[in-house]
Design a binder for these strands. Structure first.
Lengths: 211, 211
DNA sequence: AAGCGTACCAGACAAATGTCTGTCACGTCA
DNA sequence: TGACGTGACAGACATTTGTCTGGTACGCTT
């Protein structure tokens, strides 16, 4: 029962704890003990304390399974919306057709996801069937790719602001630039991520909420 | 302290627990109690039991924070590899330049991620800078998009099998079909997901492991 | 009115879990 | 050789956490 070389056990502990945290169920100290084959709880405790002192783990004292990884943003369930129509955004959220776990920077913001249906953004690799993750905001910068409501339909385009007027540019020459009347355009949010599943669609995109 | 209408509190409990589970730290029963404003632990317990009976939560009895969501695959940390060269795959795994939390179907499989560097797959919306998630496997079906080692370089192409011989097709007319000698081609895996971050690159793509 | 189902409360107990003190073993360095 | 740092063990205690029994309140149905 001699010690292993310095640093080796600590790394094994870190990898085990990290994987468990990422998998969604941080381990108890005794689970670390058992997984590492230690005889004493204190051995696991000690390595965990070292990792905390090094800043590689964060601990909530006195709480079961209280270790977490620093700098990893929270995961939230983002609703995948079906149809989005004018004045009906809240209903679209409630009637989402699935959910997408997304690591975000801030839980203070609202997000939603849409499935891309047209070919107007293919020039930048946003293809039909892709899923765009959208941060909810009513304004955006010129050049951002946004989801906007025009008349009665949601559309994904690149925003251009010309003298304060909204232009919605496609990224495909076969589509025209939209210059909607200001009264008939609403920006719903900014596209922050694009995802494409080449294997089968994951099961968690099915609705996990009560209907 | 009259009861709320049937079903309302249960839904609030489910949403709270679901969000906490997705965020990576399932709640204790007393945390549910406090979050809902109940005076008694047993109230929280009862709603949780009902949700378990309905199959919407799964419980590990006797363990702290033992509730989980059914049908949600595990999350694993997928290494984002830099250079991949022949005969050096294990080293590339160890020297990954970041990690990506990915929901997968099975922890029994191995995954890695690569940053796309060429334009040969732009026809199907796989753009330079995208990140592809790859399921590790040595064979694939004709038509799959794969990561293959050719001579000494990893490349992302669509696999075509002609009379048992490997062809690697680009999805961009400006690139040529590769018909490598069988001795000089190795399939590393199948691309299962494409991700693009339009906001800044998330911090967790930085290396969380020890160097 | 009685029964049932759901939403709540109060209190207590058992086990899991966090935490601490004390100790030994080994390798390295001055 | 002694000191130090890291890796280990043993044991005990305090607190958190899961779980249970017993009870009330309300609305609906027969």
């Amino acid at each position: 029962m001699g010690p292993t070389p310095p640093g080796q056990t600590k790394e094994r502990v870190f990898r085990f704890v990290q994987q468990r945290i990422v998998a969604g169920m941080p381990p108890t100290v005794r689970e670390v003990q058992r997984a590492m084959g230690f005889s004493a709880v204190q051995t696991a405790m000690q390595h965990l304390e070292t990792l905390v002192a090094e800043g590689r783990l964060v601990k909530t004292s006195g709480k079961a399974r209280g270790y977490s990884l620093p700098g990893v943003g929270p995961t939230v369930l983002v609703p995948l919306l079906g149809r989005v129509q004018a004045g009906d955004f809240t209903t679209a959220i409630q009637q989402h057709e699935g959910t997408l776990p997304i690591q975000v920077r801030s839980e203070d913001r609202e997000y939603f996801a849409l499935r891309v249906q047209g070919e107007s953004m293919e020039g930048v690799g946003i293809m039909p069937g892709d899923i765009v993750v959208v941060q909810r905001q009513a304004t955006a910068n010129s050049g951002d790719i946004v989801v906007a409501l025009v008349d009665d339909e949601a559309t994904i385009k690149r925003l251009r602001l010309r003298h304060g007027r909204v232009e919605l540019h496609p990224e495909n020459q076969q589509f025209a630039i939209l210059r909607p009347d200001p009264q008939s355009v609403t920006i719903l949010g900014k596209v922050i991520e694009v995802r494409r599943f080449l294997d089968a669609t994951p099961p968690w995109l099915a609705d996990l909420s009560a209907d």
